[in-house]
Design a protein around this nucleic acid. Structure first.
Length: 663
DNA sequence: TTCTCAGT
């Protein structure tokens, strides 16, 4: 390892890493020629010597250099430790102005950044703190937080303390209990007492007296079933906020409409749907669940209609732009993303609507609520003033939220709020093979497919290469020929992007057959199917939402015309990079959309991520025909059979149930 | 291994 690093090296690394705002790569390379190789050389006069730099730009570059000082200091530390200067941008973002000081105080805070390994943090520590020790309590504390952060990626909001202890031991920490206590005292991590178990021999729970001694003892004892749980403070607090605020809304709600007016809008609804309407208008928080085609949206439309008639203020929202757009179309009432509703502030993560400036709706309806993570739900609930009625609509059998938490499932499990489950299928023929298979999978069964009319076809494949060839064959030949469903009405859905049966390769193969061309305009040709990968709801005349699938119908000067199902959109400028080829899309992105024909690919490399919700979500995208290209072997049946192959560890259901008992 | 959302 290099013991000393010169100022020139730090400066060069800083410039090359793109940390100087406004300084391009080209200009960065020209700095030495202008006599600028250290920070002291940076003056407006010298910057003026750069090609294509005038007085005004020179002054601006000078002041932006000064404002980048925090990042510069961090680069010095990183480069000195042999780490990549590029990390500095993230460090400055995460740790703020005094990032360098904070790293000097505790080099292991580096571990909080994405893509940083414990080895990287250790290297920084050795460079900064001569004689740094693996047993340093700051190191242990960072590993505790890191362990919890990693679990977060699988959706967990808490971990049993003994799992964290095991992770600490695996990193060579000799006193894991001390590390846990240090993490808790640092405020980044919370400890939660084990659930009270009336059958336990010892009715006295461990004393938690703020000294940390109770938990320390339990950690030393290494858990067992009654072990303490640990959470990152942000998620632990978010779950508590959800539980408290659900209880608050339940306690403060007053009925909005009388039974007579409920009946007046319930004409086209079945009994369960009408009951749901009544419940929404009575309870502070209520849930409406059910699979695709059971009439959730119809019910919401009826509620909106009734509330509008009564002059009540209704706010409609959904976790994704596309779901919001669809909700708006179905109800004929404005709908926005939950983030928009709450006035999200950007990367800082704050919301302008909160307790101080709450929403002013009488009723808030959130569709696709299975996609709500704990933090967003907490923010939503906190922004609902006393007396607001909140309705969450969703299907707990579909994919869970990307962010941590299991909000919809926990709300259902807790029995803390009324739930109406719609079960009668209206969209598909009830006896149809797709509906039968979907219902079976929802219940954890994978029966052999019996579909002589070929509504469902299973195509076995021995590997992902063969699977990919089968997909192309199905879309371009078999499905149109045997079933009369044109390729334009067929959507390919796969769990992954990468690999021979991922979206990238499948799209290449499908384009070659369906719309060959060089992609001369921004990588696309007229006739290409595209999918949006971000929201651009402000484009003319209507904009598009992430996940929408459309077809390129024309190209202009710096623009593409794309026909989405909601209408043609002229796509220009910064919206162009947010389009990709869309013949094949991921299951995640397909959530919330349906097509006449769907080809689901299950390649072997997706075996680890297969789960009942993923399979269920994939196959319920099909309206008339479903082909399943099956190359994942026994993993499929296992994924469907087990309640959840990868259950999320959360605390919300218990918190809600406790809140109800106490209230 | 999936990748929602937001502003400048």
């Amino acid at each position: 390892m290099t013991a000393t690093v010169t100022e020139d090296q730090v400066f060069a690394a800083f410039c090359a890493a793109g940390l100087w705002p406004g300084l391009g790569k080209r200009a960065a390379a020209e700095l030495p020629a202008a006599g600028i190789t250290t920070p002291d050389d940076v003056t407006a006069d010298r910057l003026l010597k750069l090609p294509r730099v005038g007085r005004q730009r020179a002054e601006r570059l000078f002041s932006s250099f000064l404002s980048a000082q925090p990042a510069y200091e961090v680069v010095g530390l990183l480069v000195g430790a042999g780490l990549e200067a590029k990390l500095a941008a993230g460090v400055a973002d995460a740790l703020g102005h005094d990032a360098a000081r904070r790293l000097r105080d505790d080099p292991w805070t580096l571990l909080a950044l994405p893509g940083v390994s414990l080895g990287d943090a250790d290297r920084l520590a050795i460079a900064i703190l001569p004689g740094a020790d693996r047993q340093d309590s700051r190191r242990g504390r960072a590993i505790v937080a890191q362990t919890l952060r990693t679990a977060t990626r699988d959706g967990h909001t808490v971990l049993p303390a003994d799992l964290v202890v095991a992770a600490l031991r695996a990193e060579g920490i000799t006193d894991p209990a001390a590390a846990v206590v240090a993490a808790v005292e640092g405020g980044e991590v919370l400890e939660h007492a084990p659930p009270f178990d009336p059958e336990a021999e010892d009715d006295e729970p461990d004393p938690v007296d703020g000294s940390g001694q109770g938990s320390l003892a339990s950690v030393r004892a290494e858990g067992g079933p009654g072990s303490f749980q640990l959470s990152l403070a942000r998620y632990g607090m978010a779950e508590e906020a959800v539980a408290e605020n659900v209880q608050r809304l339940m306690a403060t709600a007053e009925p909005i409409a009388d039974p007579v007016s409920v009946r007046s809008v319930s004409k086209g609804l079945d009994q369960a749907q009408a009951a749901a309407v009544g419940q929404i208008l009575t309870a502070g928080v209520s849930l409406l669940t059910g699979g695709p085609g059971t009439g959730k949206s119809r019910t919401v439309a009826a509620v909106v209609q009734l509330l509008r008639k009564k002059g009540a203020e209704v706010a409609l929202a959904a976790p994704t732009g596309r779901a919001a757009k669809r909700l708006e179309e179905l109800t004929d009432h404005p709908a926005v993303t939950v983030h928009r509703l709450l006035g999200a502030q950007g990367t800082t993560g704050g919301f302008s609507r909160n307790e101080e400036w709450p929403l002013d709706a009488d009723v808030v309806v959130v569709d696709e609520a299975s996609m709500l993570d704990v933090e967003l739900t907490a923010a939503l609930l906190e922004a609902c003033p006393d007396g607001t009625h909140l309705l969450l609509v969703g299907d707990p059998a579909q994919l869970p939220s990307i962010g941590p938490g299991h909000v919809l499932g926990d709300l259902i499990d807790s029995a803390a709020v009324p739930v109406t489950e719609l079960t009668t299928l209206y969209r598909q023929a009830e006896g149809g093979a797709i509906a039968r298979l979907a219902t079976a999978v929802r219940g954890g069964d994978l029966p052999p497919v019996d579909s002589p009319d070929r509504e469902v076809v299973v195509v076995p494949a021995s590997g992902s290469g063969e699977a990919a060839r089968r997909v192309v064959q199905l879309v371009t030949d078999s499905i149109p020929r045997a079933l009369g469903i044109q390729p334009s009405s067929v959507q390919v859905v796969t769990p992954v992007h990468r690999g021979p049966a991922g979206t990238i390769e499948l799209n290449k193969a499908l384009k070659a057959q369906l719309n060959p061309g060089d992609g001369t305009v921004f990588g696309f040709d007229v006739g290409d199917r595209v999918v949006a990968t971000a929201n651009h709801l402000d484009l003319e005349p209507i904009g598009f939402a992430n996940g929408e699938v459309g077809v390129v119908t024309g190209t202009g000067d710096g623009s593409l015309t794309v026909d989405f199902s909601s209408g043609p959109v002229t796509v220009t400028g910064n919206a162009l990079p947010d389009l990709r080829h869309g013949w094949a899309i991921t299951v995640h992105r397909a959530q919330g959309s349906e097509w006449p024909g769907v080809v689901v690919v299950l390649p072997p490399e997706a075996g680890g991520m297969l789960s009942r919700p993923l399979v269920y979500t994939a196959l319920t995208r099909a309206q008339q025909h479903l082909s399943i290209v099956h190359a994942s072997g026994a993993a499929l049946a296992r994924a469907v059979r087990e309640v959840d192959v990868r259950p999320r560890r959360t605390r919300l259901a218990r918190l809600l149930a406790e809140a109800v008992e106490e209230g």
